[in-house]
């Protein structure tokens, strides 16, 4: 199973919304993923264990893992293009 790390400033409000929306949209495409949340500041030390990072904010490094920085899972704007990109990066 692919693993995605979702990051935001406090790892509670924003990333919870992003993780829920991302999980729903990937499930709708038949993709079963594991999603964990963290603070942006924790990404450099945690990213190595994941296939992909999705963040609403800047991070200081992703241990070489791909990152999608987007607000689309909050605003809805451009969300389909981001889901395509994420599906591509996971396959």
């Amino acid at each position: 199973m692919k693993k995605i790390l979702v990051a935001c400033g406090t790892a509670i409000a924003t990333s919870t919304v992003v993780a829920k929306k991302l999980e729903d949209m990937l499930k709708a495409r038949g993709l079963d993923v594991r999603i964990d949340q963290c603070k942006a500041s924790e990404v450099p030390s945690k990213a190595a264990a994941y296939d992909l990072v999705v963040s609403t904010t800047e991070v200081d490094g992703t241990a070489g893992k791909p990152i999608v920085r987007t607000l689309s899972f909050l605003t809805g704007i451009g969300i389909d293009a981001d889901v395509e990109k994420i599906v591509g990066l996971l396959s």
């Binding site: 509670i12 919870t16 919304v17 949340q37």
Partner: peptide, 14 residues
């Protein structure tokens, strides 16, 4: 949002 746990309140914010 004033959230005390993401399980409890995340759905409301979402």
């Amino acid at each position: 949002p004033a959230l005390s746990s993401k399980e409890q309140a995340g759905a409301a914010l979402a």
